[in-house]
Amino acid sequence: MKVSIDDVVLPGDYCEDIVNAGEKSKVILGPGLRKEIDKVYITKSGVLRKRAPNTYWVDSYQKRYVPSRAENVIGVVVQKAGDTFRVDVGGSCTATLSYLSFEGATKKNRPEVQVGDVLYAKMLIASKDMEPELVCVDSHGKKGRLGVLNDGFVFKCSLNLVRKVLSPNCPLLNSLKNEWPFELAVGMNGRIWIKAKTMRETIAVGNAILGCEYLSDSEIKSMCTNIASLLAGHVS
């Protein structure tokens, strides 16, 4: 069936608007779209979205993570294999992480990473036919925000929720950030790590994030004030 922007789409549908845009200028086809000879087909069910000037993708509900390049993910070290670590990121197979791709690591000076540690890392290579490779440094050799995450609490959620939490329009983080100290790491693989000073506060952050999946912006705001007042009442 022929579809246009902001429609609900199914795999096998095609969009002529994108083909027309592609004749004039470069077009970026995001997840859920595929170019086949002279048509652009939908490969996932969801809502067809467009961002100016010419980026198109399908906003779909998904829980399965498919590794792709340059995404920041949260992984768990499952094995030390010689000079690499095997890291579970939730994909079809484990990712590899060289022990040299940490800040300040050399052959003699190995990083202190144990089996079972939680890492925040960047996908360096992610292709269909090979196992993905992670790094914990940027191109300047600095660790930046990447590395081992100590203490805290990890939970899983859908990939949509991750994108919702990280979108600049989402009021969740803005309404929580002035309430109590906490930090979080959000992986594009649907895992979120949170850490706060007490167990109550950690649970409150976790519940706030999980609760906002199907709420509108105003509902999220009221939920956050609700949680904050509950927490403040018990502490004092």
Partner: peptide, 29 residues
């Protein structure tokens, strides 16, 4: 042709950096 395929949402949607800290929990971040 003019079509560039991307498998990641990070190039489509405008997303924040995924590592955040508030109210002095992690001064480095």
């Amino acid at each position: 042709g003019n079509f560039i395929s991307e498998t990641s949402f990070i190039y489509c949607e405008d997303l924040l950096e995924g590592r955040l800290s508030f109210k002095g929990m992690n001064p480095e971040i």
